[in-house]
C-alpha cells in the first residue's frame, strides 16, 4: 500500500512578484497576464507521486496580506516548508528575500529550521533581468537554501523546483520527526480527506 504524506507549504514574497501566478500555473496550469492583487485564494492542493509515495501538497498563498504586513503566526504555523518568490526584473524584491527569511524565523522561532526554497520568477523576461543569477544562487547556497529560476508564464522549472522541495522536506522530516498530537475538528465529515483531489 502506498502511503500519503501531507505537506503544508507557504508561499511568500513581496507584492506582485507572481506568487499566485506561480501557484496557479503549478496546480492548475493556467496563467493570466493581468495583475490582480490576490483576493479569494486560500490554498491550492496538488498531489504528486514520487518513489512510491503519494504527496499531497497544500500550498498556501498569502491572500494579499503581505501588503499590510498583517500576516499572522497562524499562517506560518505547522508549515513544512517555505517558498520565497522574488522577481528577477526587480532588485528590490530580491533584497526583500532576507527580510522574509527573518520574518519566517520570527514566526516559527529562531531556534527552529524548516526547508526553504527561493524562486526567481519571471524568467520569460530574461532580457530585462537585473538580478544576477550566479549571485543569487551563491547567496542562497551560503544560507543553505535551494534556489531555482522559474517562469509562471511558460511553466519552466516550476515542476522541478517543487519536486526537489518535496524531496528536501522528506529528508528533513526523517531527521526531525514530527510529533503526533491527537485532536478533533468541529467539522465532522473528514475534512482532510476532501482536500486531496487525486484519484487513486
Amino acid at each position: 500500500m502506498k502511503s500519503v504524506e501531507n505537506f503544508k507549504i507557504i508561499l511568500l514574497g513581496s507584492q506582485a512578484v507572481g506568487k499566485t501566478s506561480l501557484l496557479e500555473k503549478y496546480v492548475k496550469n493556467t496563467f493570466t497576464i493581468k495583475y490582480k492583487a490576490t483576493i479569494g485564494v486560500d490554498f491550492l492542493s496538488k498531489c504528486i507521486d514520487l518513489d512510491n509515495t503519494k504527496y499531497s501538497l497544500q500550498i498556501w498563498d498569502t491572500a494579499g496580506q503581505e501588503a499590510f504586513q498583517s500576516l499572522s503566526t497562524h499562517f506560518y504555523r505547522g508549515s513544512d516548508a517555505c517558498v520565497i518568490v522574488f522577481d528577477i526584473t526587480s532588485s528590490k524584491t530580491f533584497d526583500s528575500v532576507s527580510n522574509w527569511i527573518d520574518e519566517i524565523q520570527f514566526h516559527i522561532g529562531y531556534d527552529r529550521k524548516i526547508p526553504m526554497l527561493v524562486i526567481g520568477n519571471k524568467l520569460d523576461l530574461n532580457e530585462k533581468r537585473v538580478v544576477n543569477s550566479q549571485k543569487a544562487k551563491q547567496w542562497c547556497e551560503e544560507h543553505g537554501i535551494m534556489y531555482y529560476e522559474c517562469s509562471a508564464m511558460t511553466g519552466q522549472n516550476i515542476e522541478e523546483a517543487f519536486i526537489n522541495l518535496v524531496k528536501a522536506i522528506d529528508v528533513f522530516n526523517k531527521e526531525n520527526p514530527r510529533q503526533f498530537n491527537p485532536s478533533f475538528h468541529l467539522k465532522r465529515q473528514n475534512p482532510k480527506k476532501n482536500m486531496c483531489l487525486c484519484k487513486n
Partner: peptide, 10 residues
C-alpha cells in the same frame, strides 16, 4: 488569526 485570514480571502 484564522478569522483574519478568512477576511483576507474574502
Amino acid at each position: 488569526e484564522s478569522c483574519t485570514r478568512i477576511n483576507a480571502i474574502f
